[in-house]
């Protein structure tokens, strides 16, 4: 089996990526059967729109999970970065500068996350949990608990809800980033090292590679993605508000896991995550159509994640 294509194919079937796409197809069919009214470009358009936000956050989360870590600071990183942009633009700065500042914020937050993990060897779980709380407070302090009420700049709105050839602009941004991500994960040094760290960081270290830089990269991508999603969500909702990131913790992680990336790190990839993001969005849409409230959605998502992890991401027996 000395063929890259053959190996990709076997990865596809083995690591749950195929399961994810099969699940996606089933879900779409189920949705159309359940409510034929859904089978419209309008519905697909809406799903793509929302999936874009989740998919963009899931880029960094995929990388972070690939190295065996997790980023729990996404919700308030997203909110804080959005607030920075909104405040700057309502203060009269150019929209590009405001967006640049927001993205820079996300990158810096990601870098701080990485320092805790790579230098102090803290588990990302508690470290990013602390970061999330810190940013929650920072958001309140920064805006005095009153997010700017001024109009969202047109550019930001266009990016989020505009269309290009009838396709949501946000989805096109996601598509561009997705292609880039897949290429980086498969063809770049950084991508190669991510997988190596997730499987065996010691071996990479003993190969004379500074694994700390790779960890830094992964968390910075995650921070950047959260900030970008914050900008897009601002445009989508036409406002910033405290708690706008609350729904974006479990859902992107769910997308990554459903897409077949191993929660222990080392295997999986973004191709599966794309399917995962679409699945969670369609599931949410179906649950809403079925008039299941937020509570029911939370329970269903929790159960689905546990079921999928039980299916294909269990730890080896300690005695093996």
């Amino acid at each position: 089996m000395d063929n890259l294509l053959a190996r990709r194919l076997s990865d596809f079937t083995r690591h749950g990526v195929a399961v994810a796409y099969a699940l996606l197809a089933l879900l779409v069919i189920a949705a159309f059967v359940y409510d034929p009214g859904l089978a419209s470009w309008r519905w697909i358009h809406a799903q793509l729109q929302i999936a874009a936000f989740i998919g963009i956050i899931a880029i960094g989360q995929t990388m972070v999970i690939l190295i065996g870590q997790i980023d729990l600071s996404v919700p308030w990183n997203l909110t804080f970065s959005a607030l920075v942009m909104a405040t700057l633009s309502s203060d009269g700065y150019s929209v590009w500068l405001a967006m640049g500042a927001a993205l820079l914020c996300g990158l810096v937050i990601g870098a701080i996350n990485a320092v805790g993990v790579a230098v102090f060897r803290l588990h990302s779980l508690v470290w990013t949990l602390g970061m999330n709380a810190l940013l929650q407070g920072a958001s309140l302090v920064y805006t005095n608990a009153q997010p700017p009420k001024s109009d969202v700049p047109a550019v930001v709105r266009e990016m989020a809800v505009g269309n290009i050839f009838g396709i949501p602009a946000a989805a096109l941004i996601w598509a561009l980033l997705a292609v880039f991500t897949v290429v980086v994960l498969r063809r770049s040094r950084f991508g190669r090292y991510l997988y190596a760290i997730g499987n065996n960081e010691t071996a990479l270290f003993v190969s004379g590679v500074d694994s700390r830089k790779v960890v830094l990269g992964a968390f910075m991508v995650s921070g950047f993605g959260a900030a970008l999603a914050g900008i897009l969500l601002t445009g989508y909702a036409s406002q910033t508000y405290l708690g706008m990131g609350n729904d974006y913790l479990l859902i992107p992680i769910a997308a990554v896991i459903i897409g077949g990336t191993n929660v222990m790190g080392g295997s999986g990839g973004y191709v599966g995550t794309i399917a995962g993001a679409l699945i969670v969005v369609i599931l949410q849409s179906l649950l809403s159509t079925a008039q299941i409230g937020q509570a029911g959605k939370d329970v269903v998502f929790g159960v689905i994640i546990l079921a999928l992890v039980l299916l294909y991401a269990r730890e080896a027996r300690p005695t093996d």
Binding site: G116, N132, L134, L140, V141
Partner: peptide, 13 residues
């Protein structure tokens, strides 16, 4: 009181 979470998160870190 907005500093509440800043302190809680900051102390943890």
């Amino acid at each position: 009181p907005f500093y509440q979470s800043v302190f809680q998160g900051g102390i943890l870190m």
